[in-house]
């Protein structure tokens, strides 16, 4: 497993894509810090990178790489190697290299310029989103043999999670606005990792506004450690879901 992971990682590093990605993140983060060194402002600007760019890059790269390493997987599967091992090492290789790129790209400027709790939470959230969207990329890839189709599915995932889903929530909020919606909206947010990541950051950046709302439920959720723990827990589940399903499909897939 470790050896296979090593070779898979080696494969990815040779493509230089992760290097480019790291460089992009470094450049973006450095310029955000230089534009306005106020940490609250930095968190906000980086938040958009983490919520939009990171998922997009992870899901596209994950899919493209899956198809590019088809030969590698085929070669491995003709050897006495477990299918599950091949899959997990591929997933981990892609996931870890994307996470590593993210941690380096965003973390180094943080070390140089300083970071507060909100930025560290953002770092953690970014890592988790990277893993989630790598999983979604793999899911799209195992569902179809056609690379173009798979990329189409991944883009759909991305647009759905970062835009369409919120539109649905807003619509519901508007339609049912005289009903108590706290539970319902919060439950809906749990079903979207991007929203969940955003809520975790809201609890860092906008806690004073969140605390300003009446309703014991909101106050209880946002004001305590509980909200954070639940959100991070659900985000962890979100990492496992696409991974679990894509692995399951892969085990039964004809290569």
């Amino acid at each position: 497993m470790i050896k296979l992971l090593k070779y898979s990682l080696y494969n990815i590093l040779r493509t230089k894509f992760t290097l480019l990605y790291t460089a992009f993140l470094l450049l973006a983060t450095f310029s955000i810090y230089n534009l306005d060194p106020d940490l609250a402002k930095v968190s906000l600007s980086l938040l958009n990178v983490v919520l939009l760019v990171v998922p997009l890059i992870c899901i596209i790269f994950g899919t493209v790489h899956f198809y590019n390493s088809y030969e590698f997987m085929e070669l491995m599967l003709s050897q006495p190697i477990n299918r599950s091992t091949v899959f997990i090492s591929q997933y981990l290789a892609v996931g870890l290299s994307l996470c590593l790129a993210f941690v380096i790209g965003v973390g180094i400027p943080m070390i140089l310029y300083g970071a507060d709790l909100a930025l560290l939470v953002l770092l953690a959230v970014g890592v988790m989103l990277s893993l989630i969207f790598t999983g979604l990329a793999f899911l799209a890839s195992v569902l179809t043999r056609d690379k173009a189709k798979a990329i189409g599915i991944t883009l759909l995932f991305w647009v759905y999670f970062s835009l369409i889903y919120d539109g649905l929530i807003l619509y519901l909020i508007y339609v049912f606005y005289d009903y108590p919606l706290e539970h319902a909206t919060l439950a809906m947010v749990m079903l979207n990792p991007v929203d969940l990541a955003r809520i975790i950051m809201l609890m860092q950046l906008d806690i004073s506004a969140l605390m300003g709302f009446t309703g014991a439920f909101f106050q209880d959720f946002y004001g305590s450690m509980k909200g954070n723990l639940i959100s991070f827990g659900v985000l962890l589940i979100w990492i496992l879901i696409p991974f679990y399903f894509s692995r399951r499909v892969f085990l039964k897939k004809d290569i």
Binding site: N11, S69, E71, F72, L75, S78
Partner: peptide, 13 residues
């Protein structure tokens, strides 16, 4: 020992 019809290998190794 398996020898495939078209051997596919990672391009960059």
């Amino acid at each position: 020992g398996y020898m495939p019809q078209i051997g596919k290998y990672p391009e960059n190794i």
